[in-house]
Amino acid sequence: MEAVKGENLVFSEVDEILEKYQNERTPLLAVLQDVSRKWGYLPRDVMGYVAKKLDVPSAQVWGAATFYSFFETEPVGQYMVRVCKSAPCHVLGAVNVLGTLQRELGIQVGDTSRDGKFTLQATSCLGVCGVAPAMMVNDITYGNLTEERIREVLALYE
């Protein structure tokens, strides 16, 4: 278990999540979403536990976990910065947004900052192209990004 807490404690938290969906058919993704929200990623042991409890082969759990780009299988930064690189943002300067973020955070796309705070990723359209270029920090979307605004947003998380 990579998570810091004791194993039983972690599994009891997973049990809570599982209980929430006990009346649902095929709740695997919903459970993984909650796990991911809790730990920021999907710890392998938790996936194994979920597989057993839901009676889903663990190879299939892994298959699903690695298919969706919002699931991480390795620990990531406290804040996941996802920069939209789809065309509507691209033509309005998404490249500069990525450049600014890389500079400000001192990391490349796909990396996590040394203090464990930020992970930077490029992603597909976030559905807020009306305020392109845009990015998401965890659950929250920011648009109309300029160098200045990026710095403002990052300051919110410092």
Binding site: L28, L29, A30, Q33, Q60, F67, F70
Partner: peptide, 26 residues
Amino acid sequence: KIRQGAGAYICGEETSLLESIEGKRG
């Protein structure tokens, strides 16, 4: 009931979407 995606454009394709609701790869 609400089911959430998890970052996969292909899940907009109707049968992939169903696979996804069924907890599988889309």
